[in-house]
Design a protein around this nucleic acid. Structure first.
Lengths: 221, 221
DNA sequence: CACCATAGTTCGCCTACCCGAACTCTCCCA
DNA sequence: TGGGAGAGTTCGGGTAGGCGAACTATGGTG
């Protein structure tokens, strides 16, 4: 057990994250891409973590977390998202700037630190991008949200989550007022050219498929 | 150059620290003790950092910092002490609890983070133990303090710095009111038995040599 | 001045990670 | 059903950093 190395924690986090919003199960190649490592390194790594009892993996088969691995992954995700929240709330970072900093800090803060931080921040349930913050007991508050790209014309909703994968996109969203809790309405879907016209506040913005996939909204009713 | 590894930063920090309050120049054995490593590891490590141009060291000779090494060491110390200050100010840690946490975090925070933190804390000049916080330009504000153990009978002073080497001692000091900026007076020096009687607030406390060495005071005039 | 305790160094070895190159498995499709 | 293409694994090798055991230099003392 002892404490897991940063590399180990990253593997677990990425395996867990693979199923959070998209349903593609984690493959060696996908993990390699997410971790920025070579495929052979990940194959090694997965074998290592399997031997440690953190992952379940038969050669050439699917990759999954053991209970112990899942607990560790959630602890890391909790740290990551609380730290992101702190960076925005206390240090005034932009929501597009917090990911990399949190990526490092999540491996450095103690449990004591993160619990004091959670208390100080008022035990938030979501981070600056709307991603749910796992509770200490492993519960993950799951907002009932759907992709903006899935809404029908005329449908209204409230922004509940924005993918933090592309900082530049986050900056653009903030600029047009597409922020957490902003009310939105789908003005038109232009399937042919692959865009969605969305009303945000007073303005109308046009989003491509990738961008509309990055935004999740809750609809009332 | 790139960025220095945590281990490298620790070596540099400890070499720098060896001359901050005591004048014993750093030796291989002393560094090993401070770093919690074996002597052979440190001998290796010093050779590695010398090859990198961070330390100056002739075999069997003295160990010193190059300009580049000193800059890096001061950057780490700055981070460490600002983080300690933050832990006490924002998260409510006790002054005896912050060292280990800061020891890890100092290697994880970015320059951006630490500068935002410094600004948020009001650019403090000293950490919770009274240790001076190096400025970004490498300046170290040096309080004109002397060891409590060096004061003559009857001399008055104000606590300016307390060594953070022993958390238990810090807890005791806090308990008897011996905190930063507390006025103190030497009631008696009992050279024979190796103690000093000190007045702190209303109370008189008796300190052994090691304890009296851990406290630094400024005297007026 | 020679000697030996002590401090410092070298040596072989270990773990955790990472890599590219070469090999192997799976599974779909002709 | 028998290839392949592509995904996955294995292999040899590299770096950083750590360790104990064995060796060597330094410098104070008889």
């Amino acid at each position: 057990m002892t404490t897991l190395t940063p590399a180990t924690q990253d593997y677990l986090k990425v395996v867990w994250a693979a199923r959070e919003w998209d349903d593609d199960g984690p493959t060696t190649t996908a993990l390699a891409a997410r971790l920025g490592l070579s495929v052979s390194s990940v194959s090694d790594g997965v074998k290592r973590l399997t031997a440690q009892g953190l992952l379940e993996h038969a050669p050439y088969g699917s990759i999954g977390l053991t209970d112990e691995g899942r607990d560790a992954a959630l602890a890391v995700v909790r740290k990551h998202r609380l730290i992101e929240t702190f960076l925005v709330e206390y240090l005034g970072y932009g929501w597009d700037e917090v990911h990399d900093e949190a990526e490092v800090l999540e491996h450095a803060v103690s449990d004591e630190f993160v619990e004091r931080l959670a208390a100080r921040l008022g035990h938030p349930e979501r981070d600056p991008h709307g991603d749910p913050i796992p509770a200490r007991d492993g519960t993950v508050p799951r907002p009932a949200a759907v992709r903006l790209s899935a809404l029908a014309e005329g449908a209204r909703g409230v922004v509940a989550r924005v993918s933090d994968a592309e900082p530049a996109l986050l900056r653009y969203f903030a600029q047009v007022g597409l922020v957490l809790d902003a009310p939105v309405r789908v003005l038109a879907r232009r399937e042919l050219v692959g865009t969605v016209e969305v009303e945000v506040g007073e303005a109308a913005v046009s989003l491509g498929l990738a961008a509309a996939d990055a935004v999740w909204v809750t609809t009332e009713g």
